[in-house]
Amino acid sequence: MLLTETARAMVTKCEFNLLDPKGKEFTGAKRSGNYTFSKRGDMCYLLCMKRTDFEASGYLNDDCLTVKLHLTVVKPCFVDATRKQIIVPSSDLHQHFGGLLKSGEGTDVTFEIDEAISAHTC
């Protein structure tokens, strides 16, 4: 249940499941779905199952049960409509590779032909 007021609707992904005393999940009870909370008091109900299935599950101990809730609030994605394109800076990666080759730093292979040539295995 949403306990406070919210300026805008909150979209959520909810997943409920029963747990035994050791923390093992009951696969027959797992329920999930997407819910939108827009005002105080909004609720989502996901843990619904037949009474006979529930009682037969063995997850009810001394009239108590443990429910696992995984709630994810989905943040809206905003796009700046004034930007028409993404500006990608020019790459200077070739200069870094050239610098490594000239310095010989980090080389792990050497080819010997008429002269020694250092190289990187990558």
Results as ranks from 00 to 15, higher is better:
Met1Glu: 04
Leu2Ala: 03
Thr4Tyr: 14
Thr6Gln: 08
Ala7Ser: 11
Arg8Val: 14
Arg8Pro: 07
Met10Ile: 06
Met10Glu: 01
Val11Ala: 08
Val11Asn: 01
Lys13Met: 13
Glu15Lys: 03
Phe16Asn: 09
Phe16Ala: 00
Asp20Leu: 01
Lys22Met: 09
Lys22Asp: 00
Gly23Met: 10
Gly23His: 08
Lys24Arg: 15
Lys24Met: 14
Lys24Val: 11
Phe26Trp: 05
Ala29Glu: 06
Ala29Asp: 03
Arg31Asp: 02
Gly33Phe: 08
Gly33Glu: 04
Asn34Glu: 12
Asn34Ala: 14
Tyr35Thr: 03
Ser38Lys: 09
Ser38Val: 12
Arg40Cys: 05
Arg40His: 00
Gly41Pro: 10
Gly41Arg: 05
Asp42Thr: 04
Met43Arg: 08
Met43Cys: 13
Tyr45Trp: 13
Leu47Gly: 09
Cys48Gln: 02
Met49His: 00
Lys50Pro: 08
Arg51Asp: 02
Thr52Gln: 14
Asp53Gln: 03
Phe54Leu: 11
Glu55Val: 14
Glu55Gln: 05
Glu55Phe: 15
Glu55Arg: 12
Ala56Val: 11
Ser57Lys: 03
Ser57Gln: 00
Gly58Lys: 10
Leu60Lys: 01
Leu60His: 06
Leu60Gln: 11
Asn61Gln: 15
Asn61Val: 15
Asp62Asn: 08
Asp62Gly: 05
Leu65His: 00
Leu65Pro: 07
Thr66Cys: 12
Val67Ala: 05
Val67Ile: 01
His70Thr: 08
Leu71Lys: 11
Leu71Arg: 06
Val73Asn: 02
Val74Gln: 06
Pro76Lys: 04
Cys77Thr: 15
Ala81Cys: 06
Ala81Leu: 12
Thr82Lys: 07
Thr82Tyr: 07
Arg83Cys: 04
Gln85Ala: 14
Val88Asn: 04
Val88Phe: 14
Asp92Gly: 15
Asp92Leu: 15
Gln95Ser: 12
Gln95Asn: 12
Phe97Leu: 15
Phe97Ser: 09
Gly98Asp: 09
Gly98Pro: 02
Gly99Asn: 13
Gly99Leu: 09
Leu100Phe: 06
Leu100His: 06
Ser103Asn: 07
Gly104Cys: 01
Gly104Ser: 06
Glu105Ser: 13
Gly106Tyr: 02
Gly106Pro: 05
Thr107Glu: 01
Asp108Met: 01
Thr110Ser: 10
Thr110Leu: 13
Glu112Gly: 01
Ile113Ser: 03
Ile113Cys: 02
Ile113Phe: 02
Ile113Pro: 03
Asp114Lys: 11
Asp114Val: 13
Glu115Lys: 13
Glu115Ser: 11
Glu115Gln: 05
Ala116Cys: 13
Ile117Ala: 08
Ile117Val: 10
Ile117Phe: 08
Ser118Asn: 13
Ser118Cys: 08
Ala119Lys: 03
His120Val: 00
Thr121Tyr: 11
